[in-house]
Amino acid sequence: MSAPVHNDNAIAGEDWARADFYGLLSHLFSGQVTEDFLARFKQIDRNEIDITTPLGFEFAELLRAIKGLSAEQINQEFTDNFVGIGKPDILPYGSYYIAGFTNEKPLVNLRDDLSRLGITRDEKIVETEDHISFLCEVMRYLILADDPPLPFSEQRAFFHAHLASWYDDFAADIEAAANTDFYKTVGRLARVFFDVETQSFDFESTV
């Protein structure tokens, strides 16, 4: 799945930033981080980041962690913790956190919503649609879609249905895992970003 072709003027700056964060998390949780991807972030000056906000602080911490790592090291840590042999230490699937097992009713509900939105999974992707990486990419798609534009309510409904109830537990499991180092930083960034999204969606729902 890829984001749609869009009119730059139709996307607000705040939404571009949100889409970029979702894209960042999707890539980091894909297990297929590339050197080209890391190079873009290694060029960012951490001193230019506003660390007085929780999101800015955690993003600066991510930049610090990325500086000393290769794509191979990051992907290996992902494999060791999120893939592994047998049952991995951390399961990055919404169904596991919502229902207690993978490939359960939450995945069926998700596929129904994806079908309604006209979103299909690339056949090359082996993971199920409730994988955190895929869900972040869907959110990015929903933000950037403009042919036709999707109402903010669609973003809010998808987030609440498929991410809001389990991201905190997922981040806590990353934090508690014995063999995560870099991904502890990613987990903290994800939690703070999703907290901001939750607050934004809740605020908009009251307006």
Rank of each mutant, 00 (worst) to 15 (best):
A99M: 05
D130V: 13
T34F: 05
L107P: 01
N179S: 08
Q43E: 15
D147Q: 15
E154Q: 14
L142M: 08
E204R: 14
I49V: 15
D45M: 09
V5D: 13
A99Y: 10
L142E: 03
N9G: 04
D8G: 00
E61K: 10
A71M: 06
F59T: 02
A60N: 03
V196E: 12
I90V: 08
A12H: 02
G94D: 09
L55S: 00
F59G: 01
L28T: 08
V186R: 02
L69G: 02
Y96A: 09
D50K: 09
K42F: 06
V186I: 03
L107S: 04
E197F: 03
R18K: 11
Q73L: 10
A3K: 12
V196A: 11
V33P: 09
T185Y: 02
F203T: 12
T34Q: 13
P54I: 03
T206F: 13
W16D: 05
D130P: 11
E58L: 00
Q155L: 12
R46P: 10
E175N: 05
D169L: 12
K124W: 04
T128Y: 12
Y141C: 07
K184D: 02
T120D: 12
D195Y: 07
P106W: 11
L114N: 03
I174D: 00
V108K: 11
A161V: 08
P149D: 03
G13R: 08
G56R: 01
L110G: 04
G13I: 00
R156V: 13
R188A: 07
G84F: 06
Q199N: 14
D89M: 02
T102D: 06
K42N: 10
S133P: 04
E127G: 09
H27N: 14
T128G: 07
R191E: 14
A39K: 14
S165G: 09
V126K: 15
A177E: 01
T53H: 04
A157M: 15
F41M: 04
T198E: 14
F134S: 09
L63M: 05
P106A: 10
F101S: 09
F57K: 13
G13L: 06
Q43G: 05
Y96T: 02
K105N: 06
